[in-house]
């Protein structure tokens, strides 16, 4: 398998086959919380792509150059990554506010939400401790691999939340029994979408 092909499969695996929302059920809070209007879900998706990629890049550096050399990574990675991600989001907020007020207005309110989002922490953790590959030998992502992998996770989040929002906006006007209105029908929709995404398992024999 060539290098480019391997990276492509890694990306696709993170995007569809092990989709963070529908297959692994991480970050369901924001998935149901901000998926009522298309504009907000697109804003959230873009913010997640941005923050997640940056966060895993920084986490990779911290893991490989601070935690591993000191032999404290195995038990200290969660507090360390939370610290790094929280400061990174603060930093990004300041920079975006200075450089592009328009982008800040579009994305600004979602950035603080993402500070404590479990999807970002999960992606950062997995980019240094790949869990889903089910390998018997310990495997460590290179920097490029971790970026590609996180980009796949973040894009998977964005695509699914946009699809979900489109369905929810249509459902708003549908004749649904009153006891199913709102969250109950949203959960059913999410479950059906999850079933559909299970179909990606086995794609390319991965």
């Amino acid at each position: 398998m060539g290098e480019a092909q391997r990276l492509f499969f890694l990306f696709l695996g993170a995007l569809l086959i092990y989709n963070i929302l529908l297959i692994r059920f991480i970050a369901l809070c924001s998935f149901f919380g901000v998926s009522t209007r298309m504009t907000t879900s697109i804003g959230m998706g873009l913010a997640v792509i941005f923050v997640m990629t940056m966060a895993s890049a920084v986490s990779w550096v911290v893991w490989n150059y601070v935690l591993v050399p000191l032999h404290v990574g195995e038990f200290l990675y969660i507090p360390a990554f939370i610290l790094v991600i929280a400061s990174l989001v603060q930093f990004e907020e300041m920079v975006i506010r200075k450089i592009s007020p328009a982008l800040f207005r579009a994305m600004g309110i979602y950035l603080p939400l993402i500070t404590t989002n479990c999807a970002v922490l999960a992606a950062a953790t997995e980019s240094v401790k790949p869990g889903f590959l089910k390998l018997h030998i310990p495997y460590r992502f290179s920097f490029i691999e971790s970026i590609i992998y996180t980009l796949g996770v973040a894009l998977g989040y964005t695509i699914v939340i946009i699809m979900f929002t489109a369905i929810r906006e249509r459902i708003e006007g549908a004749p649904i029994p009153s006891s199913f209105r709102g969250f109950p029908i949203a959960f059913i929709v999410a479950a059906l979408m999850s079933l559909a995404f299970m179909g990606f398992a086995g794609l390319f024999g991965l």
Binding site: V66, L70, H71, V72, L83
Partner: peptide, 12 residues
Amino acid sequence: IILKAALSMAGL
């Protein structure tokens, strides 16, 4: 190891 953990977090 405790000292190392505390110091690395404090430094970070």
